[in-house]
Design a protein around this nucleic acid. Structure first.
Length: 266
DNA sequence: ATGGTTGTGCTACAA
């Protein structure tokens, strides 16, 4: 089974790229982030024609996540237990940043769009840290229930876990994504039992999944590794290969993120 | 020249 994760930065704007990507790489399951749409706005006919079931969770124009699967899609969930909301609860607004389903041979895959954090002084930064702690708790609960659970947390984590995951640490000295609290929150998910299954085969430095649209970051090879596939022990031992599809960042109409692809054999 | 973007939805905002 081939799974992938991709921050698509608007599914409607890039439906053609998604369809071409699925076909080109023979992808069974694709987790998308930043779909930037509410489900009724999506025209899913072409995806369904291609054999994919779709679950989408979107509540506003900024974020939203989806799962596409041609190997079954059962028990869809749209909330991580205990995850905080943003903006503050009194507005009544919540976000769509997590969606999971059970695909293939009993794999629960979560499509996650971790809060960005914005600036260090911004309330969104604390929200990001609390969000990651809720993810850790859910991951720990899942493995406490069954150490054999096939669970994958995939998506845009908006954290560069190591210095080698950004092109220039000096540039990020006063910015989010690299601060010790963010890295500790990410590492806590890893230590709960969910390893980055791509890094061993694709060590850095210079291995990135995101390049800002601005300042010619892509041609200058100034990117960040912030998109991950984190797998429970059962998933880790099923990995047979992986790659980052850097080609998808090229050309007109590219997302600012590249897809991350992982092959699994249970 | 010290900048060079993009999507959504309506002109600001998020990334």
């Amino acid at each position: 089974m081939r799974i992938a994760t991709w921050n698509i930065n608007s599914l409607r704007a890039r439906m053609d790229r998604v369809l071409a990507f699925l076909e080109r790489h023979d992808v069974d399951v694709l987790a998308l982030q930043e779909i930037k749409a509410k489900p009724p706005q999506l025209d899913l006919a072409a995806l369904e024609q291609a054999g994919y079931e779709v679950a989408a969770h979107g509540l506003n124009q900024w974020n939203g996540v989806a799962l596409l699967s041609r190997v079954g899609l059962a028990d869809v969930r749209t909330e991580l237990p205990g995850v905080p909301t943003w903006p503050q609860d009194e507005t009544g607004v919540v976000e769509a940043r997590a969606l999971s389903g059970v695909v293939g041979d009993g794999l629960r895959i979560w499509s996650l769009y971790v809060p960005n954090g914005r600036e260090l002084e911004h309330p969104h930064y604390g929200y990001k840290l609390r969000w990651l702690e809720a993810l850790r708790a859910e991951g720990a609960r899942e493995l406490a229930e069954s150490a054999q659970s096939r669970t994958a947390f995939v998506g845009d984590f908006n954290v560069a876990p190591f210095d080698e995951d950004v092109w220039d640490m000096e540039f990020f000295a006063d910015k989010t994504h690299v601060t010790p609290p963010e890295r500790a929150a990410f590492q806590a998910v890893v230590e709960a039992g969910y390893a980055d299954v791509v890094r061993p085969d694709h060590p850095g430095p210079g291995v990135y999944t995101y390049w800002d649209y601005q300042k010619l970051r892509f041609p200058k090879k100034e990117g960040m590794r912030i998109d991950f596939v984190l797998g429970s022990p059962a998933v880790q031992s099923a990995v047979t290969g992986s790659f980052i599809d850097r080609e998808e960042r090229k050309g007109k109409g590219a997302s600012d993120h590249a897809p991350v692809v992982v092959d699994l054999e249970f």
